[in-house]
Simulated scan of single mutants.
Amino acid sequence: MIVERRSEARGRGGAGWLDSRHTFSFAHYYDPQWMGFSALRVLNEDQVAPGAGFAPHRHANMEIVSYVLSGALAHRDSQGGEGVLRAGELQWMSAGHGIEHGEYNASDREPVHFLQIWIQPDRLNARPAYAQRAFDPVARRGRWATLVAPDGADGALPIRQQAWLHGVRLGAGEQVGFTLDPERAYWLHLAQGEAEVAGRSLHAGDALGLAGEQGRLVLAGRGAGLADVLLFELPPL
């Protein structure tokens, strides 16, 4: 099974300081056909105006990953976790039994553009945790890098779920493959640029969900810029 989720079909939210696109139901956007995919519950593309941000608020029992596409994102939480993420960097916050946190644009001049990702954990009421990491973009050019992995295996950011996040950057004409396990589900999101995947042309914000598929998934970069591709490897549906 392969499902398409086109960028223009996503929900929209936000206020004057926030422009947000929701791949799945979130906040005031509700679509019963798009409640998540396997353990992937939220995938929001957010643009936050200079000096603005999300005031402190509380979450519990959710794995939250943020990936900055441009600009700088500041984080602070009630467990003492804090930092500033810049383009290409990721942060992981496990809300565990409960944590209060806020995210802000670290600049008063430039907007910040990032992905907000929620994944349901495989354990409840764990101790909250936080980590952030920069990954060398050169190491992702034309080959997969594991960005997130269960409990931080192989130098990736940790996550409390049997889920992985892989990333690759492709220039025009560059190709890469990924061998699919029919016992896993996959969500492929094109964060930036253009690519061709499984014979489909994808543009920034487009996504494909795959379940029960096997064989080699082939991706190719298209267009003038780099395609920034994220592939979530998830428990079966």
Rank of each mutant, 00 (worst) to 15 (best):
S201P: 00
Q161T: 06
L237T: 15
V176F: 02
Q120H: 12
G96W: 03
F54H: 08
A156W: 10
G173S: 04
V176H: 11
F26N: 07
N125R: 08
H166I: 04
G51P: 13
A220M: 15
L231R: 08
A204H: 06
P236A: 13
A145W: 02
G173V: 07
R86P: 02
E110I: 04
G225L: 09
T179Y: 03
G205L: 01
V68D: 10
G205D: 05
R184D: 05
S94F: 03
L202A: 03
S94A: 07
R200T: 10
V148D: 09
G225T: 15
Y104C: 11
E233R: 05
G36K: 13
L234Y: 14
P182R: 01
L188K: 02
G167D: 10
R6N: 09
V176D: 09
M62A: 15
L73K: 04
L43W: 13
Q162G: 10
A87S: 15
F54M: 07
Y104D: 14
R169G: 06
R216D: 06
H97P: 01
L210Q: 11
W118N: 04
A49T: 12
A172G: 05
A74K: 07
L208M: 06
D77E: 08
S70V: 01
T179S: 11
Q120Y: 10
P121E: 10
P56Q: 08
L40D: 13
M93A: 04
F54G: 06
G102M: 03
I99D: 03
A227H: 11
G142N: 12
G36T: 13
G71N: 09
A207T: 05
E174A: 02
R169I: 12
G13D: 05
G209A: 14
H75G: 01
R184Y: 00
P235C: 04
L147A: 14
E174R: 02
A163M: 09
L85I: 14
R141N: 03
Q33V: 13
F114C: 03
V65C: 05
E103K: 03
G102N: 08
D122T: 10
H203D: 01
Q33C: 12
Q161P: 01
P235V: 09
S7D: 10
V197I: 04
S20F: 05
W144D: 07
